[in-house]
């Protein structure tokens, strides 16, 4: 396959490509960042993380491509990645096709979705809770991501919030459900509800603050761009994976924003 001749849309958005790779490989964001650090180039890390295509003889040239990195420029590496993604079962095939044809992506036929959603893993800090149950310990938790100084992606309205270190943006329920099992299905759910009841703070309407110290790895599904939310995005569902014991770092808000396909990327007015 001749990558010199491969047509790539003039502006392939790297954040979008990155979000596709994360969705296709299921890797956490931090691991992609580590990989990029070692590979030295995002395009190369993305392609290598995606891995050599398997199976079909026709893809042999693609696999061999991996050993010709040094002869390629960044655009050729990107073209390779898109080629491999095309061979995979990815949710957004039509967008890849469109990229290869040099067009902007359009919404899939028959779908009412105008915005792309992605899944990703972040490390977020517990900020406040809303008690839900009567008689049983059940809370809606709000987790925050870190506000960083990086200029990119910041929405205007956040400037006023820059005195606060975190922005609450992800919600999950925790505690006993009706059947007596945990809502989140993690073994330490009881331990967490106990911790919450022992660390409640200031009351703000129906919401109670908690000691801001506990960091969790969260798997977020259906994350999409949203102008109406302070953080600039919303998530359809959030599942807790890990309760970090001490000193875990919190994912910056900008990392999520960078990953999110902006509505204008897909030619839609979000």
């Amino acid at each position: 396959m001749n990558f010199d001749g491969l047509v790539v849309a003039e502006k392939v958005s790297l954040p979008r490509l990155k979000s596709w790779i994360l969705a296709a490989t299921g890797l956490p964001l931090w691991l992609l960042t580590e990989s990029q650090r070692f590979a030295g180039s995002l395009n190369e890390a993305l392609a290598l993380v995606l891995g050599p295509p398997e199976g079909k003889i026709a893809e042999k040239e693609l696999a061999e491509g991996l050993e010709r990195w040094r002869e390629w420029d960044e655009l050729q590496k990107q073209a390779w990645t898109i080629q491999v993604l095309l061979l995979m079962e990815v949710p957004d095939r039509r967008s890849f096709m469109a990229l290869l044809n040099g067009r902007t992506a359009t919404k899939p036929v028959g779908s009412s979705d105008t915005v792309e959603r992605i899944s990703l893993q972040v490390d977020a800090i517990l900020l406040y809770v809303r008690p839900l149950g009567r008689g049983i310990a059940q809370y809606e938790l709000t987790f925050g991501l870190r506000v960083d100084d990086s200029a990119d992606g910041g929405l205007e309205e956040e400037k006023s919030l820059s005195d606060s270190q975190y922005i609450g943006c992800l919600k999950a329920m925790v505690g006993e459900d009706g059947a007596g099992s945990g809502l989140q299905g993690v073994p330490w759910e009881g331990e967490l509800t106990q911790w919450i009841s022992g660390n409640l703070g200031e009351r703000i309407g129906p919401i109670r603050g908690v000691r801001v110290s506990e960091v969790f790895s969260l798997h977020c599904k259906g994350v999409e761009f949203s102008k109406r939310h302070k953080a600039g995005f919303k998530a359809a569902s959030v599942r807790m994976l890990v309760w970090h014991s001490e000193g875990a770092s919190v994912t910056p808000l900008s990392a999520v924003r960078d990953l999110l396909p902006k509505p204008q990327d897909s030619g839609q007015s979000g």
């Binding site: 490989t25 890797l27 691991l31 992609l32 580590e34 990989s35 070692f38 590979a39 190369e44 890390a45 290598l48 993380v49 891995g51 050599p52 042999k60 696999a63 061999e64 991996l66 050993e67």
Partner: peptide
């Protein structure tokens, strides 16, 4: 120990 390292089947490498 990084996901960027994924080896191809050795026979394809020896063919090369």
């Amino acid at each position: 120990g990084l996901p960027i390292f994924q080896w191809r089947e050795q026979q394809t490498v020896f063919d090369d």
